[in-house]
């Protein structure tokens, strides 16, 4: 396949996945902000979202203060913010458009329809209908696109690059969401009911609440939440599951230049496969997740070098 085509497919998947996970992150933050707490603490959470995406200075250029309204507007609908949901959906559509001949008609129409719909709404209209409904819509559209992708695309390199992009982005995003929320949750000394709601919201945002109940059949504890989201191979959004998929996709698209990238992916996978949650937590969860995100970043670099800008 043409390197440029692979590049567009890979980024189309990354942006689609990123939009979805951003909706998940903002949704959980919004849910948590409804739990009684001081305004200052609340705004601190919103500031953390900006920091997570290194967007503090870009935000400060257009907005006067960090609060729920401003951050949501900036992260949902601001076309000048390249990391907003709006911009991610636009980038996904642009990448799809550049290779629409490679996509099935259903896939193109799904991505195009998402974009047409999102650009027709103002932020005020989104608020009027309910922000959570919008987040649900983003997740649903992502699910539809994923569905037609798996349901209609030939299982060849085009699909493998789409999956690779999606898995890389998802691994990174799950780590980010967990890192941020874990940080916030660990800071609260309140061991009472509100904590339950916060852990619950985090799990729900990653579609893992029912899974947690099913797997542990027990009270929600931070260590188990971390174990579930990091180490459980059978949870589709866990770091382990993403690393596993990345290794398999790299095997399918391997070329003469990709041995080192495959090795790195193998190391990442092995570290997750053979890890124990006690060891992970003993070394510091934040440190662990940061290291994971760095490795994902390096993998992305390697994929870019080996496949996407090939000689």
């Amino acid at each position: 396949m043409l390197s440029r085509t692979a590049d567009h497919l890979y980024w189309l998947a990354r942006y689609t996945e990123r939009a979805e996970n951003l909706a998940r992150l903002l949704d959980v933050s919004y849910q948590m902000s409804l739990v009684p707490q001081s305004i200052a603490a609340q705004n601190e959470n919103w500031r953390a979202i900006l920091a997570l995406n290194s967007l503090e200075s870009a935000f400060a250029e257009s907005y006067s203060g960090v609060n729920v309204d401003n951050v949501l507007r900036f992260m949902v609908a601001d076309a000048s913010n390249p990391s907003s949901i709006y911009s991610c959906l636009r980038a996904a559509r642009e990448n799809a458009h550049a290779v629409r001949g490679t996509l099935t008609a259903e896939m193109w129409e799904s991505i195009n329809a998402t974009w047409i719909e999102v650009r027709q709404q103002t932020f005020e209209q989104i608020l009027a209908r309910g922000i959570s409904e919008f987040f649900d819509w983003v997740k649903l559209r992502s699910a539809v696109t994923r569905g037609v992708t798996f349901g209609t695309m030939l299982k060849d390199d085009a699909l493998h690059f789409i999956r690779l992009g999606g898995l890389l982005e998802r691994g990174d995003n799950t780590a980010r969401i967990l890192d941020m929320q874990y940080h916030v949750l660990r800071q609260s000394d309140d061991e009472g009911a509100s904590d339950f709601y916060r852990w619950g919201a985090l799990l729900r945002s990653l579609s893992a609440f029912q899974v947690y109940r099913k797997v542990y059949r027990d009270a929600i504890t931070p260590a188990r939440v971390a174990e579930l989201l990091i180490l459980r191979m059978d949870l589709p959004r866990s770091l382990h599951a993403c690393a596993d998929g990345i290794v398999r996709m790299l095997q399918l698209i391997a070329n003469d230049a990709s041995a080192e990238t495959q090795r790195q992916a193998g190391v990442l996978h092995a570290r997750l496969h053979f890890a124990r949650i006690d060891d992970v937590l003993a070394g510091g969860l934040h440190e662990y997740l940061t290291d994971f995100m760095d490795r994902i970043y390096e993998l992305g670099d390697g994929i870019n070098r080996d496949f996407l800008i090939a000689a």
């Binding site: 396949m1 043409l2 390197s3 440029r4 085509t5 692979a6 001949g101 390199d157 690059f161 698209i253 070329n255 003469d256 230049a257 496949f307 996407l308 800008i309 090939a310 000689a311």
Partner: peptide, 24 residues
């Protein structure tokens, strides 16, 4: 067939190649 743009092609030894994920 592949739909290519100029930047997808290059010439080496008076031969045209396209940049693919499996090399030239």
């Amino acid at each position: 067939i592949e739909l290519v743009e100029g930047r997808d092609l290059f010439v080496r030894d008076e031969t045209v190649f396209m940049r693919t994920t499996q090399g030239p």
